[in-house]
Design a protein around this nucleic acid. Structure first.
Length: 444
DNA sequence: TATCCGTGGTA
DNA sequence: TTACCAAGGAT
């Protein structure tokens, strides 16, 4: 690559950007805090998805101090539905670092910015270049795609080493004094023209010297190895309906401090024995109108309830849910009917949620007869023995200990009864948001 | 280095 | 419907 060709690329691209750039909320000015928030929200997230979240977030937390001093629950609630929730917690931690160590002013040196929680190589480059116009590369997926095509680079962009290589190339292309615009131009081109599936070479401002296109490789570049497919998990969830003083409420729980969906709220659920783990509960034949969110599904649950018992598969699952929730959380519930199915897709896991309407409290064998109406006690006990879930001597009883039955249940600290109003305070992942909204819509 | 982290749009 | 993947970071 000659210097003149590089100059051509940079200046043609920069001119195109200045004439075609989108008007976006974070392009109002170059306030480093606004740029920072936008870059974190835009991590692995589309512009159109981010915009309404960004507007709400900046409205609620206009300054670094506002964000740093806010209750964490409010920050999470503001992020609800956007995904990758550690971003929200790290962003607030970063704001607190800036407040305590930099007098509330975003530092304008690379090392300090890169040291902030949730700020990696891309985001530090983006903040330094866009907010401070420093000549730092900001290499994201767009930039790797654009440069892989333009310079016909056949490196696997899934490998971290490739990003490092492209960072050096991108740094060398930054025009004097235009780092912020140039970095945004690269990303804008990737988002609007040099798109993953069908690149718009005919309207591309740098098509004449694009080596990838000239080699007819615009559709095969960039090279990227396939990601591992997500593992399926069947999860048995309890929609626990309150009675008495808790009438009209639902029992929810908060997830642990770290890991998947950290600190988010959810319906209690347990991991079902997975297929292949040895005589496991298989999910009912899924698909076709059985999803809780579909209009026709609630009907399926009603039919099951009215027929005086659950389908065998659901009976087995309900029983397993009841026992496991008792064992794991010490929460005693009585599933009374299958309510529906919902799917939740993560990057690395797919949840098949089987939702069971449940009552709160201990149960006895007689109470539980509905669980075995379809499958028969023999089938259920055989299943339970196979899973070694309780002592064979209890096989005929299907009940928990008498002490547990009699005791007044105390809720674990991470459990809470909530009504519709509490939906405005607690942050839920989207699946549970939909399930709860659907429940309250249909019970008004 | 590989895996863990959400969610939704699109072809 | 599946498959891809988006202004990535932490461990």
């Amino acid at each position: 690559m000659t210097t003149t060709a590089a100059l051509y690329f940079s200046h043609e691209l920069l001119s195109w950007y200045l004439a075609n750039k989108r008007i976006l909320p974070w392009r109002m000015n170059r306030d480093p805090y606004r740029i920072w928030v936008s870059e974190v929200m835009l991590q692995q997230t589309r512009v159109d998805t981010v915009i309404p979240y960004y507007e709400r977030f900046m409205d609620k937390f206009p300054t670094i101090t506002d964000l740093a001093t806010a209750p964490e629950a409010e920050v999470l609630k503001c992020w609800e539905g956007l995904g990758y929730y550690s971003r929200a917690r790290n962003l607030q931690a970063g704001a607190q670092e800036v407040l305590s160590r930099h007098d509330g002013i975003v530092p304008d040196d690379k090392e300090s910015v890169a040291a902030l929680r949730g700020v990696g190589p891309y985001t530090s480059g983006a903040i330094m270049s866009i907010a401070f116009n420093r000549p730092e590369p900001a290499v994201d997926g767009n930039v790797m795609r654009v440069l892989s095509r333009y310079f016909l680079l056949e490196d696997d962009i899934a490998k971290p080493a490739t990003r490092v290589k492209i960072e050096k190339l991108a740094a060398s292309l930054i025009p004097e004094g235009s780092a912020g615009d140039f970095n945004q131009a690269l990303m804008e081109l990737g988002a609007l023209v040099c798109t993953p599936k069908s690149p718009g070479c005919l309207t591309c401002p740098v098509m004449v010297h694009c080596e990838g296109r000239r080699a007819g490789m615009e559709h095969t570049l960039p090279i990227k190895t396939k990601a591992k497919p997500p593992r399926p998990e069947t999860r048995l969830a309890a929609l626990i309906i309150g009675k008495g003083k808790d009438a009209g409420k639902v029992l929810v729980r908060q997830r642990p401090q770290s890991g998947l969906l950290a600190k988010m709220w959810e319906l209690p659920h347990v991991l079902a024995p997975q297929p292949g783990a040895g005589g496991a509960v298989k999910p009912p034949r899924s698909g076709r109108g059985r999803k809780a969110a579909d209009a026709g599904t609630a009907a399926s649950a009603v039919i099951e309830e009215q027929s005086g018992g659950l389908l065998e598969q659901h009976a087995l699952q309900a029983d397993f849910l009841c026992r496991t929730l008792s064992a794991e959380d010490g929460v005693l519930v009585r599933p009374t009917g299958w309510r529906g199915e919902a799917e939740h897709v993560f990057s690395h896991i797919v949840w098949d949620l089987q939702v069971f309407k449940s009552e709160f409290g201990a149960f006895t064998a007689a109470d539980n007869s509905h669980l075995t109406a379809a499958g028969g006690v023999a089938g259920v006990t055989a299943f339970l023995e196979q899973r070694a879930l309780y002592e064979p001597s209890d096989a005929a009883g299907l009940k928990l200990g008498a002490a547990a039955v009699a005791a007044e249940q105390e809720l674990p600290l991470n459990y809470r009864w909530i009504g519709p109003e509490q939906m405005n305070e607690l942050a839920f992942p989207n699946v549970f948001l939909k399930l709860l909204r659907e429940y309250w819509e249909n019970t008004d």
